[in-house]
Structure formats: structure tokens, C-alpha cells
Design a protein around this nucleic acid. Structure first.
Length: 448
DNA sequence: TCTGGGGTCCTAGGACCC
DNA sequence: TCTGGGGTCCTAGGACCC
């Protein structure tokens, strides 16, 4: 995807406003103008909000059960997250954006950096055309920030979002530096890409509170006291591009399948079933990517909030507080597999065994996960070589995958994972929207 | 009662080697 | 009494992102 990048070329960060909400709205116009939130898996907490919901004071990360009671009074609409829809919409958005760039780097499900040639006037008109094209072809609104570095493009995009008068476009080249500095001196450092709460606190201790303060800090001092990452941020704020392209790797470094339960799991038999099912879901992802793993890690965890009674409510960020402390209640077990594999039978056995050694029956586990790492491309090696007839290639992973693709997710599974009906702990999705773009039977119907 | 999931990168420190 | 030093590889943990 990446060609050479002229050093002085501008770049743009294009991202979709309130992406998940905008996807829901694209297919359900009744949501227009109303406060709308999209919930995390298990309908746990708010992960996306429309502008109206933001104005109503609903924060990202708020547990749904705390808002639910007020929903009717606020006219608030909730949707369960529908990642199949968002993934497909994302691909469409990225394709349209890519038409305008000299190069494109897709940074996340709803954001893309692209290289833009031309003088200031051309840049601004291109940015405007990108907005129109995405709106016309996909039906979701985007904002565009244009600048010489990624960090500044992110900042420009932020400015475009906050200022409706700009029509969704901000090119820093059109803004006098005094004005840029004035804005930067009002935005806290943590508003910056790459500066989170922890680093923010440490910066504040040094008297660095705003983006402007960090821009004026000594890069060498920052490197010494923090890291190269933050040093790069300082340089980028001053117009020197130094955050390299994140290559889309042929191979991921890890594949994870992890979920919260709708009701806690306490028994060994249930946990066996969870591990078996999660290992197979992860194995299916690996097979789909043509990879195999040499290390398997299983995790389980208790509620981060249950024990909080009496504890000091330490400043919890929007992302939900501290990571679970490993221990008996939050086991993390890694095992090196005898040989790299994508075989769901081997992986399932290993996952079940690894967790059995660590889980404490009676403990109320609220989530668990299976992670594969040490990934490498899988060769034609298959599970049943010993039993396969000549010229016959049998591969359990693809076999299961094919059956699932054709007959549904729960149609087949190994051991405890062949679920005739969903187990008691499976995910809750009460407000799910249809898979408008990826399932024939969910195709929207238009009457005229 | 009920609080997401899936990633990446960097750094420090230990093991090991010569 | 004296007890090198530099390099690499690996892993765990921290921090951040969306």
C-alpha cells in the first residue's frame, strides 16, 4: 500500500464522526437527531455516543445499567454493538478515502491517514471533496485534519470536530501560528494522540499542562525522563514528521478471543466449556489468517468492581480503572505448545488443561480469554496426517470453519463446545441491529 | 444483579554467551 | 583481597490506542 512519501508532503487524518452511531443511523433514519449510544459486548457499557447523547451528559465507559433508568426520559436509544456491520462499513469508507490519497495508511476501524499533494488551496478543496464523497457513497459523516505530521493532523482533526463553523475540515496551513498556539494552550496534554492519563500526570508534575507546553519542552529532556515515543510527539508538534508508518503486517503478533460472561462462571465444568469454546473460536481466527501458534495463554478474571467496597476509589480513567492484578482470582497461564499448531483439538485440550490447574472452583469469574502468540504462517501440515489416505488432505480447522460458515456458529464444535443451545453465560445483546450489509436476509428494504 | 475487546510498541531486567 | 564487560535474546509489564 505504501509508496514513497515526499518529505514535505502534507498528510490528512480522515475519521468518521461517532463511527458506530453513524453506522446505525445510516440504516435507521429514525435515529437522526436523537441521542443514541452503542453498547459494548454484553451490553456492558457505553462505547459510542451521538452528539445529542454527549450533550445529555452521557460519558464513554458508563455502565448501561446506570443509564438505563433515565433512557426513556432522555429519549435515549441504545444499540448493541454490531461489529459485522461496522467492519463492512469501515471497508467501504476506507476504499472511498483511498481514492484521494497518494498513499493510505488505515490506522483503525474508522480512521485513515492519507498523503495529499498540492498547495493550501488544493488541500482544502480535496479535504472537502473527501467529506462529500464518503457521505454520498457510504452515508456517514467524516472530519478531515490536514497538517505536516501525523500528530498535528490528529490535532487538526480535533479542531475540525470542535468547530462546526469549519464544516468538518481543518488544514493547519490556513491557520496563523498565533491562533494555533492559542488553541494549543487551552487543550490539556492528554488531549494529544499518544499521551494518556499516566503520562499526563507525570507531565503535569513538571509543569507541562497543555499541548503548547509540551510543544515548547526540550525533546532531549523528554526522552530522558519519558521515552522515545513521547520525544517523537514533541518533534511532531514542531512540524518534524517522525512517526513511521505502521506497516500492515503479513502476520499478526497475537490473536485473542476473550469475552465477559452475562452471568459469572463458578464451576469447573462450566470453565472447561468456556475454554473449549474460546480456544476453538480463536483457532478459527488463526485458521482464517493462515497462522499457527507456539504459545497459548489463558486468562480468567473476577470483577474489578466487586472488591472495591471499602477500597479507596482511586482515580479511574474513562477506560475503566486499573488492570486486574494477576493472582489466584485473575489467573494468567502461558504454555509453550509442543510444536506450533493451529489444530483446534490440540489447542482446546491445552486451554482446558492450563485453566484447570489454576481456576478456583467457587470463585465468581466474570470473564475469560484465550490468546495465541508466537505466530507463524501455517504450512500444509494437518491434524490427521496419520489417518489421511494418500493425496487426502484433512484439516480439522478448515473443516470446522466450513461447517460453521454454512450452518451457523453453533452448528459444530469439539467436546463441550458443540452447543445445542447457548450456555447460561453467553453474551447478552438485547438491542442488536440487523446485519444490513453482510447477510441477505437482513438486507434493508426500501419502499417508494 | 448488571462495568468491552483487541491490539501495538517500548523498556527493564534476567539469562546466556563469549 | 580480588570477583569483567559487552552483546543478544527473551519475557513481563506498562502505557497507549480505538
Amino acid at each position: 500500500m505504501s509508496e514513497d512519501r515526499p518529505l514535505h508532503q502534507r498528510l490528512a487524518l480522515v475519521d468518521v464522526n461517532n463511527f458506530y452511531v453513524s453506522c446505525e443511523r445510516a440504516f435507521d433514519p429514525r435515529l437522526e437527531g436523537r441521542p443514541v449510544v452503542v453498547l459494548s459486548n454484553n451490553d456492558g457499557c457505553v462505547v459510542a455516543r451521538s452528539e445529542e447523547a454527549k450533550r445529555a451528559g452521557i460519558k464513554t465507559g458508563t455502565p448501561w445499567f446506570q443509564v438505563q433508568g433515565r433512557a426513556a426520559a432522555l429519549g435515549l436509544v441504545a444499540r448493541s454493538s454490531n461489529y459485522e456491520l461496522y467492519g463492512d462499513m469501515s471497508a467501504r469508507v476506507m476504499e472511498v478515502i483511498g481514492r484521494f490519497g497518494a498513499w493510505q495508511e488505515v490506522y483503525s476501524i474508522d480512521e485513515s491517514f492519507i498523503g495529499l499533494p498540492g498547495d493550501e488551496g488544493v488541500l482544502r478543496s480535496t479535504a472537502g471533496r473527501i467529506r462529500e464523497a464518503v457521505w454520498r457513497h457510504v452515508g456517514v459523516p467524516v472530519c478531515v485534519g490536514v497538517a505536516p505530521t501525523k500528530t498535528l493532523a490528529k490535532f487538526a482533526n480535533h479542531v475540525a470536530k470542535r468547530n462546526p463553523g469549519l464544516d468538518g475540515v481543518c488544514s493547519l496551513g490556513s491557520v496563523p501560528d498565533g491562533e494555533i498556539r492559542r488553541i494549543q494552550s487551552r487543550v490539556p496534554v492528554t488531549g494529544l494522540w499518544g499521551v494518556g492519563g499516566r503520562t499526563g500526570t507525570r507531565l503535569n508534575a513538571l509543569g507541562i499542562d497543555t499541548i503548547a507546553d509540551l510543544r515548547d519542552a526540550d525533546p532531549l529532556m523528554i526522552r530522558k525522563k519519558f521515552s522515545v515515543v513521547l520525544q517523537r510527539t514533541v518533534l511532531e508538534l514542531n512540524g518534524t514528521p517522525c512517526i513511521p508508518e505502521v506497516e500492515e503486517r503479513a502476520d499478526k503478533a497475537q490473536i485473542m478471543f476473550s469475552r465477559s460472561f452475562s452471568t459469572p462462571v463458578t464451576g469447573r465444568a462450566d470453565m472447561d466449556q468456556v475454554m473449549a469454546l474460546y480456544a476453538q473460536r480463536g483457532a478459527a481466527r488463526m485458521a482464517a489468517e493462515g497462522l499457527r501458534a507456539s504459545v497459548l495463554t489463558v486468562t480468567a478474571g473476577v470483577s474489578r468492581f466487586a472488591a472495591a467496597a471499602g477500597a479507596t476509589g482511586s482515580g479511574e480513567g474513562p477506560s475503566g480503572g486499573a488492570a486486574p492484578v494477576p493472582g489466584a482470582s485473575n489467573p494468567v497461564v502461558s504454555v509453550r505448545l509442543p510444536a506450533p499448531t493451529q489444530d483446534p483439538i490440540v489447542l482446546t485440550r491445552a486451554a482446558v488443561a492450563a485453566m484447570r490447574g489454576r481456576m478456583v472452583p467457587g470463585t465468581r469469574y466474570v470473564r475469560a480469554g484465550v490468546m495465541f502468540s508466537g505466530l507463524e504462517p501455517a504450512t500444509g501440515q494437518s491434524t490427521f496426517d496419520a489417518f489421511a489416505g494418500e493425496g487426502e488432505e484433512r484439516d480439522m480447522g478448515s473443516l470446522l470453519g466450513n461447517v460453521r460458515a454454512r450452518f451457523g456458529e453453533a452448528a459444530i464444535g469439539l467436546g463441550h463446545a458443540g452447543l445445542a443451545e447457548p450456555a447460561g453465560w453467553t453474551m447478552k445483546r438485547e438491542f442488536a441491529s440487523p446485519r444490513y450489509t453482510t447477510e441477505w436476509k437482513d438486507l434493508p428494504v426500501v419502499s417508494a
